[in-house]
């Protein structure tokens, strides 16, 4: 469970990215955060694993205050939270499976990881996760040889190999074409349901949000302006979130 209690975040340059956020995300939910760029979606997600530090209020993950954690406890918490980035954040020169094993580093002692001695069961796990997202045969191909969709699948496999409780995804399909976007979102949703993971995804495409979310949170200028189950959401809701009519380019299409 993730809880935000009166959270605000002001950047050193004075920009208020988050304003008094109160929010609870239950275990196993698949939540999509929508809003225009600059609305604070990305900042909100990154406060959960403290890639961004809140300036007021508290963020609790399983009742633990993220801001209070010391270095060691923070690393422990981060092993429980996987994050998927828009630009994949893979090492291009390493094979897919080696990139996936990067997700296991938090569970591996420094010495063992540096001499490259990972437990066989971890390697099995990595390979299984690559197969789950349909790219098992690419395990030994260098990451920079893969297509965008394949790269994002490698990063999904990396996150799964962490065996996290929570997955965060920051605009996971923004660099992909429409058909690939759907495939990647479908994969993400499927594995997250199979492993009963709490998932928070940032999207700015409203049709993707409608298709894959269990619950939608709308943000505008650092505030939550909508929060409700997908059944209550219509195109009208988005117009309220965006504060203007929806444009065609805000849909990914298929």
């Amino acid at each position: 469970m993730i809880e935000f209690k009166n959270v605000s975040l002001t950047y050193p340059n004075g920009v208020k990215a988050l304003k008094n956020i109160d929010l609870t995300i239950q275990k196993g939910e698949f939540v999509v955060i929508v809003g225009m760029s600059g609305a604070g979606k990305s900042t909100l997600i990154k406060t959960i694993n403290r890639l961004a530090t809140v300036t007021e209020g508290e963020v609790l993950v399983d009742s633990e205050n993220v801001m209070r954690l010391k270095e060691n406890r923070l690393r422990k918490l981060r092993t429980q939270i996987g994050i998927i980035f828009q630009d994949y954040n893979l090492v291009g020169r390493m094979s897919a499976i080696r990139n996936v094993m990067v997700g296991r580093l938090g569970h591996t002692t420094t010495f063992k990881s540096i001499i490259g001695r990972f437990p066989q069961k971890d390697l099995q796990l990595a390979m299984r996760n690559l197969e789950r997202v349909g790219i098992g045969e690419k395990a030994y191909v260098r990451a920079d040889q893969l297509s965008g969709g394949q790269k994002q699948r490698v990063s999904i496999a990396r996150v799964l190999t962490q065996q996290p409780k929570i997955i965060l995804a920051d605009e996971p399909v923004a660099s992909l074409d429409p058909p690939t976007s759907h495939k990647v979102m479908r994969d993400l949703k499927r594995v997250s349901k199979e492993d009963e993971l709490t998932t928070v995804v940032n999207l700015h495409f409203i049709d993707l949000a409608m298709e894959y979310a269990d619950r939608i949170i709308g943000m505008r200028e650092g505030e939550i302006v909508f929060d409700g189950p997908i059944e209550e959401v219509s195109e009208k809701t988005f117009e309220e979130i965006y504060g203007r009519p929806i444009r065609e380019e805000e849909k990914r299409g298929d």
């Binding site: 694993n49 890639l51 690393r75 422990k76 918490l77 981060r78 092993t79 429980q80 939270i81 996987g82 994050i83 980035f85 630009d87 994949y88 954040n89 893979l90 090492v91 990067v102 997700g103 580093l105 938090g106 569970h107 591996t108 420094t110 990881s113 540096i114 990063s155 990396r158 996150v159 962490q162």
Partner: peptide, 15 residues
């Protein structure tokens, strides 16, 4: 970027 990913998944600075 890869460093950010490793730090975000609980890896230490040497890793």
């Amino acid at each position: 970027a890869p460093v950010e990913a490793i730090r975000a998944s609980g890896g230490n600075s040497l890793q």
